[in-house]
Deep mutational scan, measured.
Amino acid sequence: MTSCHIAEEHIQKVAIFGGTHGNELTGVFLVKHWLENGAEIQRTGLEVKPFITNPRAVKKCTRYIDCDLNRIFDLENLGKKMSEDLPYEVRRAQEINHLFGPKDSEDSYDIIFDLHNTTSNMGCTLILEDSRNNFLIQMFHYIKTSLAPLPCYVYLIEHPSLKYATTRSIAKYPVGIEVGPQPQGVLRADILDQMRKMIKHALDFIHHFNEGKEFPPCAIEVYKIIEKVDYPRDENGEIAAIIHPNLQDQDWKPLHPGDPMFLTLDGKTIPLGGDCTVYPVFVNEAAYYEKKEAFAKTTKLTLNAKSIRCCLH
């Protein structure tokens, strides 16, 4: 018999989150649709729960009410004593943790798909938090293969000092899905179709896995975050240069030392320094102006996964 890495157990509980950011409308629209008619997301033997994560922000069509829901799922915020004085999103995070967690427990949901849009030209993107997770690498390989020839990129946010504390991190297997470009507060049919297909293929993978299909060893190309880059700023902290036209919409493309990065209003080009080629992502993302992030630098690498098969009882 072929030796293989056996994944822990079959997958039982899956959640699909929309509206973690209330103005990213593809996930909101799909989740609302699936709450009314969820036939397309159901798979035999699998509990799939669509869920609106930040209903107040969705109602106002804004990213958040008090603070970013997708950055506060750490033990400090989840452990705060519940009171009306807490920011709305912290209270909501505790409610979500109660419903789908608790985080880092045996009772937490197996998989959470968190649906997002970006204003950046990132196409279909899967966000991975753990480079050693054979199950998710296999799932992402399946999704990428199923979507081809449509490109699907994998963004690895594993980093020693950049801690995200994402909404989906309460699950055993957290999956971020990011599709763009799409303006905030807008629905685009092409973007919706791409996100819908990503979810379909992900659920198909889980179904095949649960039925005992063995997935042979595989490898995927990923883009691992190195650092986030702020806009150049003046002495008052105001933005002093904008994304250069040569960099705009060039997510995932190589940016070499000396290539144009920013452009000042008086026409001066600010190039990339250093001696390493990087791959920019979230270029000129609207939501990241407040976070002082013009783009993120990534490096390209390959992740390998062992063969996996479900432990059938």
Rank of each mutant, 00 (worst) to 15 (best):
K80V: 07
I220N: 00
F215P: 02
V179F: 02
C310A: 14
L162R: 12
A202D: 00
L150S: 13
E285S: 14
Q12E: 11
L263T: 07
A57R: 04
S108T: 10
L301E: 08
V48P: 07
S131L: 06
V175E: 01
T145C: 07
N134F: 11
T298H: 01
I206H: 00
H256W: 06
A15E: 00
G79Y: 10
E227A: 06
F295Q: 00
N117M: 03
L272A: 13
N133G: 01
E36N: 15
H116I: 03
D107L: 15
A240N: 09
I220K: 00
D251E: 06
R91W: 13
P232C: 03
T53P: 06
G185K: 05
T167F: 10
N134K: 05
R309P: 05
L25M: 10
V28T: 12
I137V: 11
Q194F: 09
K13A: 04
G45P: 05
F140M: 15
N246A: 10
E285R: 03
V31Q: 00
I11N: 04
R92V: 12
A171Q: 02
T264M: 13
K49E: 08
G22N: 07
Y173I: 08
S120Q: 01
E40S: 04
L99G: 08
N236Q: 10
E221D: 09
Y155H: 14
D190R: 03
K13T: 12
N134R: 04
R56P: 13
S169T: 11
G123F: 04
F17L: 07
V14S: 03
P50F: 02
M195C: 14
E221Y: 03
R71A: 08
G79C: 07
P151C: 06
E40V: 02
I96M: 11
E221F: 01
T44D: 13
F295C: 04
R63S: 11
G27P: 06
I6V: 08
V179R: 01
K224P: 03
T53Y: 05
E47V: 11
E290A: 15
L69A: 10
E9M: 13
K59C: 08
K172C: 05
D74A: 15
C61D: 10
A7K: 08
F209D: 00
A287Q: 15
R63C: 12
T264I: 03
V90C: 09
R56Q: 13
F135G: 00
